[in-house]
Amino acid sequence: MIRINCPYCGERDHSEFNYGGDATIKYPSLNSSEREWTEAIFFRKNIKGFQLETWHHSHGCRMWLVVERSTVTHEIKSVKPCHPDFQKVVENNK
């Protein structure tokens, strides 16, 4: 079991969460080329090692999180709220 330290709820089993995917994807502007949109939607780095990824605490607070996790050892380095404003709130409340 992977244990994810949710900034809102505390440390929980990963079975409470749903895996989202690559957290570094940035969608291009609406008038970008077909090629750029294809890259953003379909093409992935598929990192072997530490990556930033999203998880949804669907059986908890239902918040989206950004997790830095190794895809080889499953070790987790950091867990933060997805939204930058929530990140600030969590930081201030520490």
Binding site: I2, H14, Y19, N46, Q51, E53, T71, V72, T73, H74
Partner: peptide, 10 residues
């Protein structure tokens, strides 16, 4: 259900 290169299951 999560991306992984580990050859062991959860």
């Amino acid at each position: 259900w999560y991306k992984s290169y580990a050859q062991r299951g959860n």
